[in-house]
């Protein structure tokens, strides 16, 4: 099992640099409220990114999660309005995500269709089904006990942050310390060798898609609950955010290496750059371009590091010192 800690260091160095710029030009960035806002904003991205990490570790990809988020939010919103007890609401959402993930997984594992195409197809179908079922209308007036889950705090920390930290801890443990978690790295590195080693490769593929779907369902607890409505087009572009967090966080897009903690750092980078630009008084219209540029810089820096292009340079020395 190969874990690339260097990427995590690259991101920390990058975040450190950004932090220094902020300390000089926008010291008001540093306050507890802002830090907590950033963590709340990335919580649902991180939770979904844990599932996506598992998927990408096996050298697959799931671009249907934006549509799954919409499906789970719709199910959660409708059942909460119908008076279903809150724990059951989220159980429904998680089950919805897992069921869609199962379809993705079966198509990838047994029909042998590349996952990017399977999930491109299912994303189209899911969005269609949602609009067909809801008639394209938004779900308004979500009940207070539903919204309390996402807007409330426990021991001073917002609930979504607790949920994120808990999922992160469990995810990190499962990926690095269980037989199933380690089999993901094996399948992603070399599926044929993994098969010879006695791993059921098909079942592994199915399991990661089910997990990804279920975690998107869980993410609705930190997402749909924070707003007063569920919009019919909710979650558009969510897949890009989550995949960005995972690959910026060092998970190899070709499978076999990566960590859950890296994905969290990736999500943090996305969240911090967005907020930092606001504090630096950059026009909101330029935000997306700069954010994309930062992400590209972080990835390019790491690609150069891995090729040894930075050997002997100051960046390299900095990375080594912090290691």
């Amino acid at each position: 099992m190969y874990v690339d800690r260097g990427r995590e260091l690259s991101i920390m160095v990058f975040l450190g640099g950004l932090g220094m710029v902020l300390a000089v030009f926008a010291p008001e960035f540093y306050n507890a409220k802002n830090a907590s806002d950033i963590l709340v904003n990335i919580s649902y991205i991180t939770i979904a990114a844990i599932g996506m990490t598992a998927v990408i570790l096996t050298a697959q990809i799931d671009i249907s999660i934006g549509a799954i988020l919409a499906a789970c939010s719709t199910v959660a919103g409708l059942s909460a309005k119908a008076g279903v007890p809150i724990p059951l609401v989220f159980l429904y959402a998680i089950a919805t995500g897992a069921a869609i993930g199962l379809v993705n997984g079966l198509l990838v594992a047994y029909a042998r269709i590349p996952s990017i195409i399977v999930t491109l197809g299912t994303l189209t179908v899911i969005r269609g089904v949602i609009i067909l079922l809801t008639g394209g209308t938004w779900i308004y007036d979500l009940p207070a006990n539903f919204r309390a889950v996402g807007t409330g705090t426990t021991f001073g920390l917002p609930n979504p942050v607790w949920l994120m930290l808990l999922t992160l801890l469990i995810g990190a443990f499962v990926l690095s310390h269980t037989r199933w978690g380690r089999s993901l790295y094996a399948v992603g590195s070399n599926p044929a060798a993994a098969r010879l080693a006695g791993i059921n490769v098909e079942r592994t593929y199915i399991s990661v898609f089910v997990l990804a779907g279920a975690l998107v369902g869980l993410a609705t607890m930190a997402f749909a609950t924070r707003f007063t409505t569920v919009q019919s087009n909710t979650g558009q572009g969510f897949e890009f955010l989550v995949i960005t967090a995972v690959v910026v966080g060092g998970t190899n897009i070709f499978g076999g290496s990566g960590t859950v903690f890296g994905s969290f750092l990736g999500a943090l980078l996305v969240g911090v750059t967005g907020t930092a630009l606001t504090f630096l008084h950059v026009s909101a219209y330029w935000e997306q371009a700069l954010q994309g540029l930062f992400i590209l810089l972080a990835v390019a820096l790491d690609a150069a590091r891995r090729r040894g292009a930075l050997e002997g340079s100051w960046v390299r020395r900095l990375l080594r010192r912090s290691a």
């Binding site: 890009f240 960005t244 935000e287 994309g292 590209l296 990835v299």
Partner: peptide, 18 residues
């Protein structure tokens, strides 16, 4: 830079739109 096309174009998708 040797970055996979999926990642490069995912980043430039954001940059060009931005």
């Amino acid at each position: 830079a040797g970055i996979p096309p999926l990642i490069v174009t995912l980043a430039t998708l954001a940059i060009f739109r931005g």
